[in-house]
Every structure is written in C-alpha cells, then in structure tokens.
Amino acid sequence: MPEEVLEIEAGDSSLQPIEALDALLGGAGRVDLLTERRARHDLRRQIALLERRLGELFTSAFPRQGIDWRVGALGGPRVLGVAELERVRDALATRLHEARAEVGRRGEIEAQNRGMVEAMIAEPERYRWVLVSNEDVGEPGCRHWHSRPRWGILGMLMGWWRVKLSSGCPLARGLRLLQTGTWPAKRDTLRPPQSIVSLTLA
C-alpha cells in the first residue's frame, strides 16, 4: 500500500464529538464505534487516492480502447460499512493493477510497432503489404503506414516498394440528404460547408 494511503489526516473534526462522548461514557461500545468510524474514514481516504490514480491512468491510456475500468457498484446510494468499503478499495486496487499491466503490455507492443514503422520506411521491400495504423502505435487518429509497390503490378515485378502514409480520417460530413429531400450531386458534397448551407437554404 502506498505511504500516502496510510497517512492520518490531522485535526479531523468529525471524530471529535465521539471522542468527547467516549471519554464521558467510557463504554466499550463507544470505543468500537469510534474505531469503526476511523476505519471507514481511512478506507474512504484510500479509495479517494486509488480513484485519483485510476483517473490518471485512464487519461494517460487514451486513446487505447478495450481496457476495463469498471469496478462494480455495491447497491448504493447508502452508507457503506467497513467490509463493504474494503471491498471497494480492494476492487479499485485490483482494477488499477490490472489496468496498469494492460497499459504496460500494450505500450511494449506499440513501441515494437513504432520500431517496425521505422524499419518499414528504411526497407519497404522487406515488409511487403504490411500495414501499421495509428492505433497500433498508441496514437489517436486514422493515419496508417502501408508498404505497397510503386506503380502497381509493375512495381511488384520490379521490386519497387515504398511506404505510403495515409492522409488521415475521413471527413465527418459525408453524403447526406439535404433538407429538400434530394441527394446532393457529388461535386456539391466536396464544397465547403458554407456552400452546402446556402444550397440548402436556396
């Protein structure tokens, strides 16, 4: 467990009334109550810290997909007891551990893929038809590197290979019905959005 988790917050006002009452009553039940409340308080602090770490990892893992971040609910909203808070804490710690391992594993693969891209660019004929996408190197976007023959079949026969870099993601705006209910001519869809708007209004 990290050291920060075990830190005790000084001056916790929420515990003071119980401590005072406990001193007055001196009962074993009150001591138990105080101990339990302290335990819950500590567990909540540990949960907060783990949640922060998980959030940091979540952000740093973007845009990698398919990593499970869920921890599971315990049927709230309600006040959880010590055992339930422990379950939440343990589930968070496990999830954090698993997610870190997964991000690390993917990071290694992505580093290998980046190395492969460099090798592909240096010697494209050794990586014929190999395609590496941005996702494979852990970056956002739709760009990809593709080892292809120059001039099609002639390049294949002659061994003229090169790496083509795609131009990125397709435009978000594709062919769609105008408000008039007719499909636009292909040249209209290639105009900037202002042209489409004016066409629609006309």
Binding site: R44, I47, A48, E51, G55, W69, R70, V71, G72, A73, L74, G75, G76, P77, R78, V79, L80, E84, L85, V88, L92
Partner: peptide
C-alpha cells in the same frame, strides 16, 4: 466520483 465510490455507486456504470 470519489463520493460515488463511498456510497456504493460505480461512476463508470452510473
């Protein structure tokens, strides 16, 4: 998010 965890909710589900 932290408070959700404290009261038994999973902020990734709800």
């Amino acid at each position: 998010r932290v408070f959700y965890r404290h009261i038994g909710l999973d902020p990734d589900e709800q």
